[in-house]
Design a protein around this nucleic acid. Structure first.
Length: 600
DNA sequence: GTAGGGTTAG
């Protein structure tokens, strides 16, 4: 028997901090590694490990750690600096990127930003709308010889666009040699025009681009957005054709912008076809579709789709619920609205200001003004939409005095009323019969707030005078308007004529309306009713002769009712409801009761 | 030894 001498087991090598850093780490292990790095003085000696730790902190989205780690690094290299700029420029506090840039330049005079730094810094300037800081950095970039670096220059185009300085963005773009421009350069300038609502210029740039570069998904998204904003269905369809013919992938961005374009052009059927074809829909796709339905007043479809989304397991975000709440408000679906309200409180969207604004609007539109006021009073931060929703809501619910009070409070706050807020207050004056106050606010628009009254504001004033039986003043007011009066304005005065029985003026207005809308017969019907009430039967029959029995109605009337959480929609002469027979039976029964009551 | 720019809904 021989003795075998066993070789000693090799002692396992302890992995270095760098190796640990490269491996998979759960949060606890990461914190352990961080504390070891702090105690062993790594940040003073090992710039690579410091940088790697920074990178890991960023992937954990723990910016406070990134900031702490960066502050420990004694001599940060450009890599570490760029890293911190990048982390912050995309964060919720982009000013931190510029703060760190200033800090680094002060503390390390030898530090100079490089071609990697500038895009992040420009991004931060753009997001913060700091064109002066951007220009300062632009000068430095030129001094450093980066005027043909496509990344730096594209960053500049986007920065100037984001700051609303489109002429500068265009100049940077034009100065960039054609051989250097890439698809991102074109995308940046096209999207710049779209952001500034210069949609026609955006589409022209898009057209020009096609001669130089193949567009990508991002290009088409911007072009489609421009088409949507302009209601340009023809071009939108052509771009959709390009998507299909050239085999572009229908990603969520392209899908959402196609839905949005079709929805804004009133083609919900085509929007839905796109929606159904998107795989892995995100919350934006669902919102685009739901917003489209809400915008085309198909509230029932909007609310149903929201339910469907939840069954699909997609979580809503604040923007989505604000959109759904607004659909509930406009359809009068108070039950649904309440349910979404509870849902918001549960998920935690309730802190979001646009959600609260939507809730105020919804409760006010559904007649629960008490609840709307409660939410309004509980809010510590109010923006112009909050105030406007409350003023309009009170006016709508007949509380003109309340609306005037809230408007006064708004004027005392640091929020400036906009055109919509003035529509609210003018309609409050009109319904409350406050003629002098109405004129005061109408004059204040231009005089104090530098807002140009739009045709809707003039409409409110005509309504105000008409309701107050100041029909001749209303007519004079229309005559003095700097804009051409439209049918809405004339019709509102015609209604006032009917109320106060002014046949002579009504005849004059009906003529005006017929000139503007020769195929509409609503004014004739109104006028003939007016003749009837004055027993001028000859004129009544003259009016009716020229009026066709059918086709006089342009927009079908529509009403909705919510029963047990389901919204039922009825359009004039629509028999599609599954219980239409029992509904009519009930209506006939009710009519009978009403008639018998009347003759009792 | 390591990283980059532009885009969508409300």
């Amino acid at each position: 028997m021989s003795l075998r001498i066993l070789a000693p087991k090799p002692k396992p090598k302890r992995p270095s901090l760098l190796e640990i850093c490269d491996g998979d780490l759960d949060p606890r292990q990461f914190y352990q590694l961080l504390s070891q790095a702090v105690t062993s003085g790594v940040f003073a000696t090992d710039s690579v490990l410091s940088s790697k730790l920074l990178l890991r902190s960023l992937s954990r989205r723990r910016l406070e750690f990134s900031r702490a780690i960066f502050s420990q690094i004694q001599n940060p290299n450009n890599f570490a600096c760029n890293f911190i700029f990048k982390a912050f420029c995309h964060s919720s506090s982009p000013q931190e990127a510029l703060f760190h840039y200033n800090l680094v330049r002060r503390r390390f005079p030898h530090f100079l930003p490089d071609n990697y730094s500038f895009p992040f810094l420009f991004k931060a300037c753009g997001r913060l709308s700091l064109p002066h800081k951007g220009q300062e950095l632009h000068c430095l970039a030129i001094a450093l010889g980066l005027e043909t670096d496509v990344f730096v220059q594209n960053g500049l185009v986007s920065m100037y666009s984001a700051c609303g300085m489109l002429h500068c963005a265009r100049k940077v773009f034009d100065l960039l040699p054609v051989s250097v421009r890439d698809v991102v350069s074109w995308n940046s300038i096209v999207s710049g025009y779209v952001q500034s609502n210069r949609n026609w210029d955006a589409l022209q740039m898009f057209d020009e681009m096609l001669a130089f570069t193949r567009p990508d998904n991002v290009t088409l998204v911007s072009a489609l957005t421009a088409c949507g904003k302009m209601g340009c269905l023809h071009l939108g369809r052509q771009i959709h054709g390009l998507v299909l013919a050239r085999g572009f992938t229908l990603d969520v961005f392209l899908g959402s912008s196609l839905i949005d374009m079709y929805a804004k052009c009133g083609r919900m059927d085509e929007a839905r076809k796109v929606f159904d074809r998107i795989r892995d829909k995100n919350v934006v796709c669902w919102t685009s579709m739901i917003a489209g339905y809400a915008q085309s007043r198909s509230f029932k479809d909007a609310i149903e789709l929201f339910r469907e989304m939840q069954l699909d397991g997609v979580e809503a975000d604040a923007a989505m619920v604000a959109c759904v709440i607004s659909a509930c408000g406009r359809s009068g679906a108070l039950g649904h609205g309440r349910w979404v309200h509870t849902y918001c409180e549960r998920i935690g969207f309730y802190t979001n200001i646009s959600v609260k604004n939507a809730l105020i609007d919804m409760y006010a539109k559904c007649g629960d003004i008490k609840r709307a006021l409660e939410i309004f009073h509980d809010m510590s931060n109010r923006d112009v939409f909050t105030w406007t929703a409350m003023i309009t809501g009170l006016a709508m619910n007949g509380d003109s005095v309340g609306a005037l009070e809230v408007f006064t409070q708004m004027e005392a706050s640091d929020v400036r009323p906009n055109e919509v807020a003035f529509l609210g207050i003018l309609s409050a004056c009109s319904h409350g019969g406050f003629v002098d106050k109405g004129f005061h606010y109408f004059r204040a628009m231009a005089g104090i707030y530098n807002l140009t009254p739009r045709i809707e504001h003039y409409g409110c004033m005509v309504d105000l005078l008409g309701r107050a039986n100041l029909l001749n003043e209303a007519e004079k007011f229309i005559g003095a308007m700097p804009i051409q009066p439209d049918v809405v304005i004339w019709r509102s005065l015609l209604f006032a004529c009917r109320t106060y029985g002014n046949i002579a003026l009504a005849e004059f207005i009906a003529k005006k309306i017929e000139e503007l809308e020769p195929r509409e017969f609503e004014s004739r019907v109104l006028l003939s009713n007016l003749y009837a009430s004055a027993s001028r039967w000859h004129e009544v029959s003259r009016m009716r002769k020229g009026t066709p029995r059918e086709g006089a109605q342009k927009q079908p009337g529509c009403s909705l009712i919510e029963v047990d959480g389901l919204v039922h929609e009825f359009i004039v002469a629509d028999c599609s409801h599954c219980q239409i027979d029992s509904i009519y039976e009930m209506l006939r029964g009710m009519n009978k009761v009403i008639r018998s009551e009347r003759f009792d």
